[in-house]
């Protein structure tokens, strides 16, 4: 009886230490608000983050085992799909929107250009299932992971259970995405008073605060809301944005306001990738606004900018590039995890 008790208390000690040793506190950058994501339901741990990183880079999530999350979300472009106005997935099939850049996910209330997804954990299901993205289903993904050499042990390390579930798969991918925090640009160091803007950047910042920051609110550079930003509808796509989700006419042509962090690298721009250059974006706001019933209040008055002022704003936007994010080795392809699997 005593021996049993001893083993039991030893076991519970091991379980408690497994939890406390592995749990990681999510670090909120100084100027950032409280995260939206509820970490108490999915506490971060190094093993879960690494499992999520492996899943993010593994094409096993797609029907033909060829497309991974990283196919459309590559780190060097702030985790979006460069060069293509509309991102393409399995068998080069084209989607109908430009993939969003992934960063600062913990502060987002909804996901996708139209906010169709209400929680980060549910986000990955959309590309996994979409017939032009990965064309798989989560039950089959779980079955493939379960018979793989690599994943039962990674899930065991992460969740203490080698039986793989949809819940654990999605939570692990969330964990990796939650670590994609960009808060170390020149702008951030200026705000921390460790650096200064040059004259042009400073002029640009003043113009930005006057004309852009109502929607692209600091420090996340988005208010995380939906706006019609006056783009003329592309009749080859007829994408009415948020209306598709709510079926409410007041939401017609509204799209989620994207962050401007790392904008230098996340081209092309807009939900349909219609602009390749930042100068085209600025010209749209200065000269190209299409009036319609749902046009954002913030854009009712014209934004008047001289040619020089447009360049100043771009100079400021370039201070939002965060090299320590774009080249952070913690986000790289997890060579070491995958090579471990081929060794065994």
């Amino acid at each position: 009886m005593k021996r049993k008790l001893f083993i039991f208390s030893l076991l519970s000690f091991v379980i408690v230490s497994f939890r406390s040793v592995n749990e990681i506190q999510f670090e909120v950058p100084n100027s950032f608000p409280k995260p939206v994501y509820n970490f108490s339901k999915n506490p971060l741990s190094e093993n879960k983050i690494q499992l999520g990183r492996a899943l993010f880079y593994d094409p096993i999530l797609s029907r033909n085992n060829m497309i991974s999350c990283a196919s459309c979300h590559s780190q060097f472009s702030a985790f979006t799909h460069v060069d293509h106005a509309l991102s393409h997935g399995i068998e080069d099939k084209s989607g109908f929107r430009n993939s969003p850049a992934l960063m600062n996910m913990a502060w987002q209330k909804s996901f996708m250009r139209d906010g169709a997804i209400n929680h980060l954990d549910a986000q990955s299901l959309a590309p996994i299932t979409n017939p032009v993205e990965m064309d798989e289903n989560i039950a089959h993904v779980v079955a493939k992971l379960q018979i793989s050499k690599l994943y039962p042990q990674l899930f065991f390390k992460a969740f203490g259970d080698s039986t793989i579930t949809g819940e654990h798969t999605l939570k692990a991918i969330s964990q990796f995405m939650l670590t994609l925090v960009s808060a170390n640009s020149k702008y951030d160091s200026v705000m921390r008073k460790q650096s200064v803007f040059n004259e042009q950047e400073n002029k640009g910042y003043i113009l930005f605060k006057k004309n852009c920051s109502m929607c692209h609110t600091e420090p996340l550079f988005t208010n995380d809301e939906f706006r019609n930003n006056g783009l003329k509808i592309d009749t080859t796509l007829n994408d009415y944005g948020r209306y598709r989700v709510t079926k409410n006419k007041a939401d017609s042509l509204k799209f989620k306001v994207p962050t401007l962090r790392n904008i230098e690298f996340s081209y092309p721009y807009m939900h349909d990738g219609r602009f390749k250059k930042l100068s085209q974006v600025i010209n749209h706001y200065a000269n190209g606004i299409e009036k319609s019933k749902t046009l954002a209040n913030e854009l009712q008055k014209p934004i008047l900018l001289t040619a020089n002022e447009k360049v100043d704003i771009i100079a400021f936007l370039l201070t939002l590039s965060d090299k320590s994010f774009l080249f952070n080795p913690q986000y790289f392809y997890p060579k070491e995890i995958f090579s471990e699997a081929t060794k065994n």
Binding site: L125, I128, N137, I138, A139, E167
Partner: peptide, 12 residues
């Protein structure tokens, strides 16, 4: 669990 097939994915 979403593997039970009772979950929408494009609009969760």
């Amino acid at each position: 669990d979403p593997t039970k097939g009772m979950y929408w994915t494009w609009q969760n």
